[in-house]
Structures are given as structure tokens and as C-alpha cells.
């Protein structure tokens, strides 16, 4: 708001009046007879609406016309269908989550199997290497045995 706004003073006066009038209204309304009148008014209005509704139903049934209630009941079916779809969707989510979890666990298990196979393979290679070494050792022992036998068979010099 600009400082030179010619309506500033009107605004200030209206604010004062509004505050004052609201205070007065608040005090005036705070009385029991008014509450009683409101109560009677609400009751009368409710009775009137009930009567209107009764007549509306009566007319509709005489004329065999659908009422707003019939339409509302049809709409309720749609809401129920929506709720069922929601429940189904949530169940699909749960299934998806379960599948995801199962796949994750399966992957974990497969990783463990692969790790175990790798370990087995490594052990197998180690065993093969050891076997090769053992074979070499066996060959060497065989060779040594043969050498020993040759030594045994060497002629012994004896004096005649």
C-alpha cells in the first residue's frame, strides 16, 4: 500500500469498526434464548427436510423413477470395486516384493555356490599340483631304487 493512498484512513476506521462490531456481536450472541431459538430452528428445518425426503421417495415410487439414493447405491458399488482393485494392487506389490526378495536370496545362494565351486576348483588345482609333485617324487624314488640296485649288482673284487 502506498503511503499516499487516500483510502488508508477509511481502512483504519473500518478495521476499528469491524473490531468493535464483532465484539458487540460476540456479546449479543452469547445468550441462552438465542440458543433455544437456534435449537427450535434446527429441529424445524430437519423435520421439513425429512418430510421433503419422504414425499420425494413416495412420488418416485409411484412414478417408478430412480431416486438420488438409487444412484448413490450404484456409485457405492463402483467405490467398492475401486477398493478391491486397490487391495489387489497391494497384493501384487507384496508379491513383487516377495519375488524381489526371493531373487535376491537366490542370487546370494548362487553367489555362495559359485564361491564354493571356485574354492573346490582351487583345491582341485592344488591337489593336482601336489599329485604331480608326488608323481615326480615317486619317479625320483624309483630312479634312486634302480640306482641302488645297480650298485648292489656291481661285481665285488675278490682275491683268488
Amino acid at each position: 500500500m502506498t503511503e499516499n493512498n487516500p483510502l488508508n484512513s477509511i481502512k483504519q476506521v473500518s478495521e476499528m469498526w469491524e473490531k468493535g462490531l464483532n465484539g458487540l456481536l460476540f456479546q449479543t450472541l452469547d445468550n441462552n434464548p438465542l440458543i433455544q431459538i437456534t435449537k427450535v430452528g434446527i429441529e424445524a428445518n430437519s423435520r421439513y427436510i425429512e418430510m421433503l425426503k419422504r414425499n420425494r421417495h413416495l412420488m418416485a415410487s409411484y412414478m417408478n423413477l430412480p431416486t438420488k439414493n438409487d444412484v448413490a447405491n450404484a456409485v457405492k458399488q463402483t467405490v467398492q470395486a475401486e477398493e478391491k482393485i486397490d487391495i489387489l494392487e497391494e497384493q501384487i506389490w507384496n508379491l513383487q516384493d516377495s519375488f524381489a526378495q526371493a531373487t535376491e536370496e537366490q542370487n546370494k545362494m548362487l553367489a555362495e555356490i559359485i564361491e564354493y565351486t571356485k574354492h573346490l576348483h582351487f583345491e582341485w588345482q592344488k591337489a593336482t599340483q601336489e599329485l604331480t609333485k608326488l608323481s615326480e617324487m615317486q619317479n625320483e624314488i624309483e630312479t634312486m631304487k634302480k640306482l641302488l640296485q645297480i650298485k648292489k649288482e656291481e661285481p665285488v673284487l675278490s682275491g683268488k
Partner: peptide, 17 residues
């Protein structure tokens, strides 16, 4: 809200904005 002329007065006061 009771007497609520505030918004209307505000509009008139600042209608150029």
C-alpha cells in the same frame, strides 16, 4: 468471522496493485 468487511476494504484500498 462475524462482520468481515476487511477483505472488501483491502481490495478497494489496493485495487491498483
Amino acid at each position: 468471522q462475524g462482520f468481515n468487511i476487511g477483505p472488501t476494504i483491502n481490495l478497494v484500498t489496493r485495487a491498483h496493485d
